[in-house]
């Protein structure tokens, strides 16, 4: 129980930290984003009243007479209500709506790709570590090339080969625009087809890291006494590999999930850009290009919350896979 409480408290602190960063970054930077924003809105013929101005000032700072503390709490209040303001590039759509539309794409893409990468990476790493010194293990250093490839460059190559040259998969987009989004077979299979290359990009570039980590931990774990016991017990190789070696070797990978997820999220933002994927990463960049600060900050917060949520989930799972944490940590 203590473990869970500690974890919850930590992620609550992390969330607060992200919100606070979000509050201070625009205020610490040179320039006046509110003016830029309002000028843009006026260009589009929007009638900006004082209430809209105040909302933006709360989000981004500006030359108000309000004290920083007061702004800060008003800002926190807005965030907790999910009130991220109005998007400039999608005027007059609220930021929250823009995010809601694009978030599922990214969650599905990154979620499935990460899951596949973890499974493929740890699976191969397990076997490579177990069969240490064989041809399979000798291939491990080669995977570092994949890990060092920039995501988007790999995406470009995949597009060049599989979309432009071979024409197996569509060049860009998230689904066939002739179809209307919905839970029907035609749309889902189209979304799947469009998702293959982006997902493949993420899987190929991130599986290597999992593989290497798992392989090295396998090698360490195989020298442990309980593996020797398992051999003396006459268990099958398969059982020793999975339940005595891999089951222990995977723990550091799980514990280090946060680091890996950071890389994946970063990579997928850029990957979405290459594929013009209708996810939150493309949306973020569009916001950046249009100086749509409100949308940008909203997206940053949502990504942060999603990442924190995923990490919390993994931490809770960790308590299930490692019985020791609940008593010691």
């Amino acid at each position: 129980m203590r473990y869970y409480l500690r974890k919850l408290a930590f992620y609550a602190a992390a969330l607060w930290g992200a919100l606070t960063l979000n509050f201070f970054i625009p205020r610490m930077m040179p320039g006046n984003p509110v003016d830029i924003l309002l000028a843009k809105l006026q260009q589009r013929g929007a009638n900006v009243g004082p209430s809209a101005r105040r909302a933006y000032e709360l989000l981004l700072g500006g030359n108000t007479d309000e004290s920083l503390i007061h702004q800060y709490f008003a800002y926190l209040g807005n965030m907790l209500h999910g009130d991220f303001g109005v998007s400039v590039s999608h005027y007059p759509t609220p930021v929250a709506t823009v995010i809601t539309a694009s978030l599922p794409w990214t969650v599905a893409l990154v979620g499935i790709a990460t899951l596949l990468a973890v499974l493929v990476g740890t699976g191969l790493g397990m076997v490579a570590g177990w069969r240490r010194g064989t041809w399979l293990d000798a291939l491990v250093p080669a995977t570092t090339v994949l890990a060092a490839v920039p995501y988007f460059w790999l995406a470009l190559i995949l597009v060049a080969v599989f979309a432009t040259k071979l024409g197996w998969f569509p060049l860009l987009g998230g689904y066939d625009v002739a179809l209307s989004p919905g839970w029907n077979g035609a749309f889902l299979s189209s979304a799947l087809r469009y998702g293959v290359l982006p997902a493949l990009t993420i899987v190929i570039s991130s599986a290597g890291g999992w593989l290497l980590g798992m392989r090295n931990m396998m090698v360490s774990t195989l020298a442990e006494d309980h593996v020797l016991t398992a051999r003396a017990k006459g268990l099958t190789d398969r059982r020793i590999m999975v339940w005595y070696a891999a089951r222990n070797a995977v723990l550091p990978s799980v514990a280090g999930f946060a680091i890996s997820l950071g890389f994946i999220v970063a990579g997928s933002i850029v990957t979405e850009q290459v594929f013009s994927y209708p996810g939150i990463g493309s949306q973020l960049l569009e916001a950046v290009q249009n100086d749509d600060y409100a949308l940008m900050q909203g997206i940053f917060l949502v990504i942060t919350v999603a990442v924190l949520g995923a990490n919390l989930l993994v931490d809770l799972l960790y308590a299930l896979v490692d019985p020791r944490v609940k008593t010691t940590g």
């Binding site: 992390a14 960063l21 999220v265 960049l285 950046v288 940053f300 990442v307």
Partner: peptide, 9 residues
């Protein structure tokens, strides 16, 4: 745990 690249962006 705070995602780096979005922050950098």
């Amino acid at each position: 745990v705070i995602p780096g690249l979005p922050l950098v962006i």
